[in-house]
Amino acid sequence: MKKLIFLFAVLFSFTGMAQNSQLFEAANKAYGAGNYEEAIENYEQILANGKTSAEVHYNLGNAYYKLNDIAPSIYHYEKALQLAPGDEDVINNLSFARNMTIDALGQEESKGFYGIFESSTTAFSASGWGWVAVFCMLVFVVFILVYYFSNRTLVKRLLFISGMFFLVLAIASAVIGFTKQDLQQDSTYAIVFSEEVEVKTEPSPVSEEAFTLHEGAKVKITEDFQGWVEIELPNGSRGWMEENEVRRL
């Protein structure tokens, strides 16, 4: 019975992969033909199936951008950048999309250790660094096994040094991955999806207006309270808005 269940699980997995592959190809074809709504529908279906990737989010951002839907365009570019940090195409297109927003908020500058850490680890996402750690650990194991069965002193010395080098890389990559994940969890950002939002001084519709934001603005969420979120802008301004006005990254 367990074997049968496992077989069905494997078949379901392969079926899902084939379906997503077909959807991706259909979406790309629709995009190439200028049918951006159809392309978006197929890309969104891939995400609904539980499959996410930088390519899907990047293509979604492009499709929404073609339709001048700024908020979802920026949202998906940001999601693509989370999965593929440092990707020049994503960064450039995200910059173009931001230029179409009304609010000139600027970008939050990372300072101190956090800024140095972020700028020096953009090669991979948190999960990417995890895979680097796994790869380095596998290489370390291979070197140690060969070291164990080797009889030549010079070869054993080189294998040992190389193995230790990859072990250090594995540990460092794992630490970077966990650190990036923790930092991402501590900093929750969102994109404003409503055309115009009155940001309040308190989490109440009758409170005074602090300032106004428009679709596509990127904000940092600092607190949640009964359907409201407190947001912070790069200039330090804070206020409250209803959670359904934004979409978390």
Rank of each mutant, 00 (worst) to 15 (best):
G112L: 04
F113T: 07
Y114H: 07
G115H: 09
G115F: 07
F117K: 07
F117V: 05
F117A: 06
F117L: 04
E118F: 09
E118I: 13
S120H: 11
T122E: 12
T122K: 15
F124I: 01
A126D: 14
W131H: 09
V132E: 05
V132N: 04
V134Y: 05
M137Y: 12
L138S: 06
F140D: 02
F143N: 13
I144G: 00
F149D: 00
S150V: 02
N151L: 05
N151V: 03
N151F: 08
T153D: 11
T153V: 11
T153W: 15
L154S: 14
V155W: 13
V155Y: 12
L158S: 09
L159D: 05
F160C: 02
S162C: 13
S162H: 08
G163Q: 14
G163M: 06
G163V: 08
M164C: 14
F165H: 09
F166R: 09
L167T: 01
L167R: 03
V168M: 10
V168I: 15
L169C: 12
A170H: 05
A170S: 14
A170G: 10
A170M: 01
A172F: 07
S173H: 05
A174L: 08
V175P: 03
G177L: 05
T179G: 04
T179F: 07
T179D: 06
Q185H: 09
Q185D: 10
Q185C: 00
S187C: 05
S187H: 14
T188V: 15
A190Y: 10
F193K: 15
F193G: 05
S194H: 11
